[in-house]
Design a protein around this nucleic acid. Sequence first.
DNA 1: CTGAATGTATACCGATCTGTCTACTTGCTT
DNA 2: AAGCAAGTAGACAGATCGGTATACATTCAG
Lengths: 196, 196
Amino acid sequence: MSQANNRLEKRDQLISTAFSLFYRYGIHAVGINQVIDAAGVAKRTLYHHFDSKEALIAATLAYRDQQFRIWLEARIEQVPPGGGALLAVFDALDDWFNERDEAIMPFHGCFFINTCAEYTDPQNVHHQQCQTHKRLVHEMLLRHAYQVNAERADALSQELVFLKEGAIVQAHVMADPQAALVAKGVAKRLLQSYTT
Amino acid sequence: MSQANNRLEKRDQLISTAFSLFYRYGIHAVGINQVIDAAGVAKRTLYHHFDSKEALIAATLAYRDQQFRIWLEARIEQVPPGGGALLAVFDALDDWFNERDEAIMPFHGCFFINTCAEYTDPQNVHHQQCQTHKRLVHEMLLRHAYQVNAERADALSQELVFLKEGAIVQAHVMADPQAALVAKGVAKRLLQSYTT
DNA sequence: CTGAATGTATACCGATCTGTCTACTTGCTT
DNA sequence: AAGCAAGTAGACAGATCGGTATACATTCAG
């Protein structure tokens, strides 16, 4: 194992450890010492890679953004394009909520919604990073909505986003394992009404 | 001003001050000292009324639960029963999001969703208190859904809840002032399909 | 060979955290 | 009149916070 590999490994180790802790316990509730202990890394090493806790938070959000979008994109592309792809989103959510897909386990709600709950001001740096993530996911749905109804793709995708967010909140807050399927039921009817 | 009044006033003052701070900055981010400074109360007084910060949090959640449900109930009862009452929910949300109703200002997302984001474990005491609140609001919608379609009231109310939660998240995370109206549009179509 | 980069461990800094304590005041109730 | 409940201000305790400093080890590149 080369030094260059070690460099990256430590950095990534810190980010993925920080993510797991932030995601489970919340950002404010997790201290820097807890992160370095769990990562098995010296404090100096953390502050070598990141200027501050704020910088670590930003890196953690970027890490999850990548992980989540790559995962969802892959799940959608497993089915033929069109309405089916949009419904596949809810099947993906179902597996996420019920922790049936190792690639995205465990489930503690949406990390970005949770982060906005800790930084409620929309002007806050972290809040805005969450907005960017949500916007990118929305655009992903929009691309597939075009295949269903190009003229009304904006409206369709936006309405599906509402159902998606509602399902995530319901699954987490109410610990409802069927949330994704309920949302999928509504999405189906919605899709029908958009498929002229 | 009698002493007996003063007693209750101090307690309520602490709760409403704590709520404002917790709601705006998050629970973990707000310290006990910050609460007593803002409330203009001695630390001893806080610990006279509450055993711990945990107890203050519980009281804060109960306070908001009451405030919110009384507010929403009042908003719904301003219109004749039936489908209109269910749509009135989204008009109420619209005023909440855009801070047009003094009774429920300001808007920093849903305090209960935010709290669940800080206490992600559904077994956590505070998380469960949030579940209870959401269940009570759901039952409120259910009662009105009965007027629309008694046989399928469960399904209808559940789907409206999803739209409601989705709208709250969208309004907060994306700072989208129109979220409630988008959700209302979907709710309208949903209601039509349930009004045989 | 040497120096820069990256890593280790650990002590330390000042600030803040929740919660307790002392000492005193006020005012209602019995 | 006496006692109790509720209030004040503020010191204090012990832990933890984010972040820095010191001293040293390893490894790769010029």
